[in-house]
Design a protein around this nucleic acid. Structure first.
Lengths: 244, 244
DNA sequence: CGGCCAGGATTCATCTGATGACTTTCCCTT
DNA sequence: AAGGGAAAGTCATCAGATGAATCCTGGCCG
């Protein structure tokens, strides 16, 4: 086993067995490196791996701390790389989104509070009022995040947040057809929010699924089709510079 | 921005824009480090981060290569850390599994081939024949993976595979009640496989959801309850040495 | 007595240089 | 032409030194 692997698995094992608890500071590099039998450089590479995976967080001058190990910490690591997924994979993500958004919508409808309903409709009004595509995208994200929050499953909420972030990168609202798409999207949101306000899980699930399906259809229609046998590799046309 | 961040984002951008394609070898450390304006050490830390996330793969003596960027490459990175998730988070994962397993079961029922049905029943027979809990767990995994495969969504299949791997770490079949639980599990499998063989998506979804719910119930019943306000931190009892 | 501040100690961040291990390539020998 | 071995290329690892950010301690001042 390589030195970095030894440090990586050793450190992970210390966390898994509770020797290093959530939020705790791990020993200094020199000390831990000696204990694990690797140099500081190799240990640092292992720590960086765990940091990329959301397990630890180094703080300059202070120390390196184990994260809270909450679902969002672990799942959030996907957001760094999910945008590298080629288009065919993205369409598969949409199928997952469709199922899960329908589920959280139904659950939110069953568990909604008056505050949730108020928040949803105020976000809808803000969405309908703005002309800025970027702001509309941000409000759209918060609208769906609010529904996921109401479903009371943080793991599921963060998973959907990661998936949505991937979709947002394509910025369909900035297309020439953007305003038209946004009007349709706003209408979808009102149907969905109304179903939740009415405590109607079935309608909410249907509305959420239809909304995701609609978004997926736009993506298929307006995005460059993938050439056959091209190993799923994207060309350089990623609309990346505007927001990231 | 720190040197490692500069290298990490720079390298990721080179991949996102297609300057480095899937499967391609990236420039040598010395050359790439100079281009990105960081030392070899910092570049290596950034490369390790991307490796942990499934984006690149260093090969000793040969070079560092961009992965195929398939969904399983990206999602598979979760398997390294999902086992660190405390128990409360795991129960939230079960809710996601329940929804998604039901979906893939329904889809598999709609799209099944004779080969799929044959494979499922042969796995069931092997499961019923063995006495080894570890082998039973492995066959159980392959049974569900086959259903996910039949649903023709590799991203979803790998996501479910990661979730199942986390659950398997608890090894309920090795408990004193194991044999009894396995008989119930085997019966569930027959119901599910029969529904798929009958091309009955509704029954398949119901059977899959019931099966996951049953597993979750076992976990709640037999695993140590979490003490209130304990920040979800696990004690050292993880049954880790047997299989990993 | 309490708060503030300066300086030292601690810790991570980065760079440089050197050596070893592994893979690939290519040329020489048979 | 095939096989073997040397050489180049590349990642892996270690050691040492310096910089930067934070934390802590002790003394000073109000």
């Amino acid at each position: 086993m390589s030195a970095v692997d030894k440090a990586f698995h050793g450190l992970r094992h210390m966390i898994a067995t509770g020797r290093l608890g959530a939020g705790e500071r791990i020993p200094p590099e020199a000390e831990l490196g000696e204990e694990l039998g690797v140099s500081r450089g190799s240990l640092r590479e292992a720590v960086r791996m765990l940091a990329a995976l959301g397990v630890v967080e180094p703080r300059h001058g202070s120390g390196t701390y184990v994260s809270q190990l909450r679902p969002e910490d672990i799942i959030g690591s996907l957001s760094l790389t999910l945008e590298l997924l080629p288009l065919p994979g993205l369409l598969e993500v949409y199928e997952i989104r469709r199922v899960l958004e329908a589920h959280v919508a139904a659950k939110a409808a069953a568990r909604r509070t008056p505050e949730t309903v108020r928040t949803l409709f105020s976000l809808i009004e803000a969405m309908e009022a703005t002309d800025d595509p970027a702001e509309a995208s941000e409000l759209d994200h918060r609208f769906h995040a609010e529904i996921a929050r109401a479903a009371e499953n943080p793991t599921l909420a963060s998973l959907l947040a990661v998936f949505r972030a991937r979709s947002r990168k394509y910025q369909v609202f900035t297309l020439p057809e953007g305003p038209e798409l946004r009007r349709k999207s706003d209408a979808d949101h009102r149907v969905l929010a109304t179903a939740i306000a009415d405590r109607d899980p079935g309608s909410a699930a249907g509305a959420a699924e239809a909304h995701v399906t609609q978004t997926e259809r736009w993506l298929r229609a307006f995005m460059p089709p993938v050439e056959e046998g091209a190993q799923g590799r994207e060309k350089g046309g990623e609309a990346d510079g505007a927001l990231s």
